[in-house]
Nucleic acid binder design. Structure first.
Lengths: 235, 235
DNA sequence: CGACAACTTGACCATTATCAAGCAAGGTGG
DNA sequence: CCACCTTGCTTGATAATGGTCAAGTTGTCG
């Protein structure tokens, strides 16, 4: 793996995020903190592979900074991105011996890395850690289930609207979702996440801009000008 | 809930299934057994609702016989079926207070029902039960992730092929996948599971029959005549 | 400043959806 | 026992959403 390893400092990026806590988010954020406190910090440069599909699954990772994409490939090269992991998200949830996904750094990342075996062994006599693992696993399951509905039944517009709202909510530092969203990933990544093509994503963004629902000051920055309209589109 | 309640007999439908055990399946099947042994049996008539979306989430269910569909609805009536649960499958995995899905009996069902609170409380000092819950939760997560790839990136033919192969494997009683598959669910259910319309499902099945890959002795029975071709289509 | 990658736009096309009609199987009442 | 109705499934004609191919633009990095 193409990463640089360093001991985990006790003051990591999560501390900042852990200050404000609201509802469910609290629990998951605290859980990520707990897990990452058991790990070592690794650095992953932009576009590096953190782990590959079918490699032995050894570690759970928590994102300290940066964005990670979790991918699955079909034989002919079609790709589905199952998730984008932002700061505080955990990935590497496997039960079998090998990874069912690859994980790649969308941007330069700092990650906390913990051996799965150690984590689960410790959880058997640490109720709080056990709770934390359950919280994170369920968060992952629920996310996958929502994504399922999006891919199975939503139109291109609805998908893009849902994506922007989700990103705004998740990348906000407080309880209010952000109005300006920075897209750390390429159009291709967005397309592969939403089950669309890059052209459709581009056109949909343009049409949202023409409808005065968003603006695109640059291709990687989005201003949510009419959040209600976006919500309506997300159906 | 429209079901009839009875005490759980110690000889339930799972015992038959538990006799032969191979690989991963063993563990999950054993896990389902373990969970269901803590519950009471309930009966759900065909098409009855077992629980509704947004109702309080109280129970985990294990299917003893019959088939259950797990659904999510969009405001305008579009439906996505997230999973079909066959004998030995568990559903009702929620962490929050309310269900994020509804569950309905596709056919007449016998279910083992266990209070979630009891299950998880007991798991904290029963390592085997804890293992069982992890196995079942991960099985659910992995299933959802595979489904994600199908909905995001596969063609109609590939979806139907994957569906038939999956059903053949899961409804088999031994290690060999069945050659004759009985479809317990309607075309509409299949369509809502695969993210297609009922017409596309029907046409795709017809075209697979014309290609001599399957036969359809009746609309609810499918013979897999050329499994290799199906696998190739599943890409 | 030039080269390359990422993004946008346009024209056209294909897959799948929609709308509509017909068919088959199963159940009910005469 | 049969006609009738209902429900679920299939098939056909047409439309639309999103995909493909191609060209052009913008932005970034050396």
């Amino acid at each position: 793996m193409n990463v640089h390893v360093a001991p985990l400092s006790s003051h990591n990026a999560l501390n900042a995020r852990g200050e404000g806590r609201w509802g469910e988010v609290v629990e998951v954020s605290r859980a990520a903190d707990l897990v990452s406190s058991l790990g070592t910090v690794v650095q992953a440069p932009r576009n590096s592979e953190i782990f590959g599909e079918d490699e032995p699954a050894e570690y759970i990772y928590v994102v300290l900074s940066g964005v990670v994409r979790i991918c699955k490939l079909l034989g002919d090269g079609r790709r589905q991105i199952e998730a984008f992991c932002l700061t505080g998200d955990a990935f590497g949830w496997e039960r079998g011996a090998t990874n069912r996904f690859s994980a790649e750094a969308v941007s330069e990342c700092r990650l906390a890395r913990v051996k799965r075996s150690i984590l689960f062994a410790r959880a058997s006599d640490d109720a709080e850690l056990s709770q934390a693992l359950w919280a994170l696993t369920f968060a992952e399951l629920h996310r996958a289930q929502d994504h399922l509905l999006l891919l199975g039944r939503k139109t291109a517009q609805e998908r893009v609207a849902a994506f922007l709202l989700d990103l705004a909510r998740r990348s906000a530092s407080g309880p209010e979702a952000a109005t300006e969203v920075v897209l750390p990933m390429s159009r291709q990544d967005i397309a592969d996440y939403l089950g669309l093509t890059i052209e459709t994503v581009s056109r949909t963004l343009t049409s949202l801009e023409e409808a005065a629902i968003i603006s695109l000051p640059s291709s990687r920055r989005v201003l949510l000008r009419d959040r209600h309209a976006l919500r309506r589109l997300d159906s």
